[in-house]
């Protein structure tokens, strides 16, 4: 395990003046973001504001052009010039996607055991027993031998969560984990995430579920056109947003 003395004080993510362009589009503009271990951060904002891009920078799925980014003591360099650190970071940072991205050709259990076996070098037995424990924890132990296409959306997303957790990540990223789900399945995924937050996992969550954000977040960040417009404790941000843009965004989403 990594040094516990440092983890209390050292941020797990430190992003400074980070800038990201897609061609001429300036998607992230001088983003400063520090996340400490155990923190649950929710990112909200309109479509196209750069939420996905921001969290995808954290595990290097997107390159950035300038600024500095240190994740779990590994520095990611601009223009993706840090392959070694990248690999380390990705083994320590888990991610859950909107579209689940389960491996359709592998059974549920193989989805969960693949990375621990190939990356962590676990034996098949170890990996399987860990996987079963995790599947049990997200309530789908009985589906282990099925294929993803045989599961409901909510079950698939819980497999995706178990798959990420199997790597024993120090940080979990969620990019709209419930946006592709039928309404009746959103609850089961949020429950699993709530559980994870309670256990002390560090989480960065992009979501439109404001009720959930208010309940689990230690901090909510509102991002607008690639800039952090406002951030704060959920009660403060939801109940008395300071910025006019935050107010109009919240008025729009909370109406539904």
């Amino acid at each position: 395990m990594s040094n516990t003395m440092n983890s209390a004080t050292h941020p797990i993510v430190r992003m400074q003046k980070l800038n990201k362009h897609f061609g001429s589009l300036h998607v992230l503009n001088d983003i400063d973001l520090t996340i400490v271990p155990g923190e649950v951060v929710v990112i909200i904002g309109a479509s196209g504001s750069g939420k996905s891009t921001l969290i995808r920078c954290i595990n290097g799925l997107e390159e950035f052009q300038s600024g500095s980014l240190v994740v779990d003591s590994n520095e990611l360099l601009p223009h993706g010039k840090s392959t070694k650190a990248l690999q380390t970071i990705r083994t320590e940072v888990g991610m859950v996607f909107q579209q689940f991205n389960l491996f359709p050709h592998l059974s549920v259990i193989d989805n969960v055991t693949l990375a621990p076996m190939k990356v962590r070098g676990l034996s098949r037995d170890e990996a399987v027993s860990n996987a079963k424990r995790l599947l049990d924890r997200v309530g789908i132990a009985d589906q282990a031998d099925k294929y993803p296409s045989q599961l409901s959306g909510g079950q698939q997303q819980r497999v995706a969560l178990a798959r990420a957790l199997a790597m024993e990540p120090r940080l979990m990223l969620f990019d709209e984990p419930t946006s592709a789900l039928d309404p009746e399945m959103i609850g089961e995924v949020l429950d699993a995430m709530r559980e994870l937050a309670k256990e002390g996992m560090t989480m960065v969550i992009v979501t439109h579920e404001m009720g959930f954000a208010r309940e689990v977040a230690d901090r909510v960040i509102f991002i607008h056109k690639g800039e952090i417009t406002e951030e704060g404790h959920p009660e403060k941000l939801f109940d008395s947003p300071q910025h006019e843009r935050t107010q109009s965004f919240l008025a729009r989403v909370l109406k539904h």
Partner: peptide, 22 residues
């Protein structure tokens, strides 16, 4: 789909492993 490669990489698989297993 792009997401298959992204999911593999985000789990810590190398590009070669992602290609070979996924």
């Amino acid at each position: 789909e792009r997401g298959q490669g992204e999911a593999s990489l985000s789990l810590g698989l190398s590009r070669t492993q992602a290609f070979r297993y996924v």
